[in-house]
Design a protein around this nucleic acid. Structure first.
Length: 516
RNA sequence: GGUCCGUUCGUCUAACGGUUAGGACUCAAGAUUUUCAUUCUUGCAAUAGGGGUUCGAUUCCCCUACGGACUACCA
């Protein structure tokens, strides 16, 4: 029997999920789905100090927008209704699993793998400053743990008394001395670390009486039978601790495999991508728009007009590639092609230009009815409500020219409103003395045309111009100026045909009057 | 500072010892479109540096440099 793959995405609700987090979720999802496994969504809310209201809902909605649906875990927001999500290991919010971790923390102390420490944050801050003034770095490790007020130094009577009377004790992991931990990472291969370089991490916090990430994470991954942990590179330094924790709890036989993903970097300069970069460089770093409690707004890919399919596609390619030259992948195709072996080790600088290109590609593939519907919403906001078929015709003419649906307006607003001003550079260049007469004559000809189709007009115009010996450039450009107001847009015949006889003639009349 | 991870065109990346080091985005030029955009063609552009190993290194090893992460009772 083959092993059932179970992965988890376990964000902390301390703010909106940024695109790096979405990518981590995506890779987890792709990995699980390809292997017929389950994708579990767990909320790691063990930091009561930094909890942000609305963050959990945001995370769920963002994943739903991307098409990443958990098989198991917390649910909420819009996906609650008719959700097929399972809960065999509920609850999936760590704050609701507090009692579990407490038991394991005590077990670790009992078995000599951890100890109680009574230092206050203030005392530790003072120690750090003291060391710093000597040019050294304070590390809570084997060199100091038997000298500070810990259960290692104190008698058991004293320890018990302090545990009972004081409420600022923590549990720390007793990091072994001079042991080389050999680890394996699915992306990076073998990694070795000497435990003497590591410190005694806090496993149970006094401030909020909750476990730290390290403990909660290991306990839950074990209890929830997670087979593969795919997470950000920032966790790599904690991997030895996590290995040792599995070992100390007696779970090393079936501990999960690990894969650490490289980080997403700033498009310019150095460092990892942060919220500020988006504002600074003008692109979203979040999947969905986010308003924080200070009333600051952060842009979202959704609100910027990206298709979720394009967003997912570009995210997948930030650190992974199929090894072929295909760059456009649907979510299903990604599921089929994804592999951890082809995940790139080095960090990827995000490139906003390429992101736009992805959207453009999707817009071109997009169904015209959907585009017309989406564009109709934008038009409705402007108080314009044309026939769906008309919008569809417009979209058809503009599809190759737009990157986002919202571009259709700038590209083709003349299809909905007569030009209010004209590009004077075009006028200067092409508007001649006899232009009004020529335009009038064109008007008359158009008026008498029975077949007002694009083909008919496309044939009629040049032959008329040639017949009269007019200048092609001058006539076509002034005609375009009348219809569009500028030197841009689809073919003149397309525009006239779509605008219709009445509107086209009225625009020609209008420009003649304007320049008279 | 310490520990760990990383390093191919400006950017995302391919090449898992033998290639004129390939593709995509960007940029530039030309063609088409008597507009603009598209499209097509072409071009610019990279193995961080130094040592090994090897008949042969982008590829394996070491050193250096550079970059990144971590170094909280945050995740």
């Amino acid at each position: 029997m083959t092993e059932k793959i179970r992965v988890r995405f376990a964000p902390s609700p301390t703010g909106p999920l940024h695109m790096g987090g979405v990518r981590t979720a995506l890779y987890n999802y792709l990995y699980a789905k390809q292997k017929g496994g389950d994708f579990i969504l767990r909320i790691e809310d063990t930091d009561s100090q930094r909890f942000v209201p609305g963050a959990e809902e945001y995370i769920i909605e963002a994943l739903a927008w991307c098409g990443i649906s958990p098989d198991e875990g917390v649910e909420g927001g819009k996906i609650v209704e008719n959700s097929s999500i399972k809960h065999p290991h509920a609850p999936y919010r760590q704050s609701q699993r507090k009692h579990l971790y407490r038991d394991y923390a005590e077990q670790l102390v009992r078995n000599g793998y951890a100890y109680y420490a009574f230092d206050t944050s203030e005392e530790l801050d003072m120690l750090r400053k003291e060391y710093e003034s000597k040019g050294e770095t304070f590390t809570y490790n084997y060199q100091v743990r038997e000298r500070l007020s810990t259960s290692l130094k104190l008698t058991s009577e004293e320890t018990n008394r302090r545990l009972k009377e004081e409420n600022h004790w923590v549990v720390r992991f007793k990091m072994p001395i001079e042991r080389v931990v050999k680890m394996n990472d699915l992306i990076r291969g073998e990694i070795e670390v000497n435990t003497s370089t590591l410190d005694d991490k806090v496993l149970w916090k006094a401030v909020d009486e909750l476990p730290t990430y390290h403990l909660a994470n290991i306990v839950d991954d074990h209890l929830m039978e997670i087979t593969d942990v795919i997470r950000g590179e920032e966790w790599l330094p904690s991997l030895p601790l996590h290995y040792l924790l599995y070992e100390s709890l007696g779970w090393e036989k079936n501990q999960p495999r690990f894969a650490h993903l490289s980080l997403l970097l700033k498009p310019d300069g150095k460092g990892k991508l942060s919220k500020r970069d988006g504002d600074r460089l003008g692109f979203p770093v979040f999947p969905l728009e986010w308003n924080n409690s200070e009333g600051e707004k952060s842009r979202g890919y959704r609100e910027d007009g990206y298709f979720p399919e394009a967003f997912v596609n570009l995210l997948a390619f930030l650190g992974w590639n199929p090894g072929t030259e295909q760059e456009i992948f649907s979510l299903d195709e990604l599921v089929e092609s994804f592999s951890l072996e082809r995940v790139v080790k080095s960090g990827a600088k995000f490139n906003p230009e390429k992101a736009r290109w992805y959207n453009q590609e999707y817009l071109r593939m997009c169904d015209k009815d959907k585009l017309a519907d989406d564009f109709s919403h934008i038009l409705a906001e402007k108080g314009i409500a044309p026939e769906k078929e008309y919008v569809k015709e417009v979209v058809t003419l503009l599809q190759e020219r737009a990157v986002f649906v919202k571009d259709f307006w700038e590209l083709g607003k003349f299809f909905f409103t007569s030009p209010v001003e004209y590009d004077l550079a075009v006028k200067t260049k092409f508007w001649k003395e006899d232009t009004p007469n020529i335009l009038n004559e064109i008007s008359e000809t158009l008026l008498s045309v029975e077949d007002f189709s694009r083909e008919s007009i496309e044939h009629l115009l040049p032959s008329l111009i040639k017949e009269r010996g007019w200048q092609m450039g001058s006539v076509m450009n002034t005609l375009r100026l009348a219809l569009v107001g500028a030197s841009k847009g689809p073919g003149v015949a397309d525009i006239i045909a779509l605008l219709g006889k009445k509107e086209s003639l009225s625009r020609i009349e209008k420009i003649i009057k304007a320049f008279a």
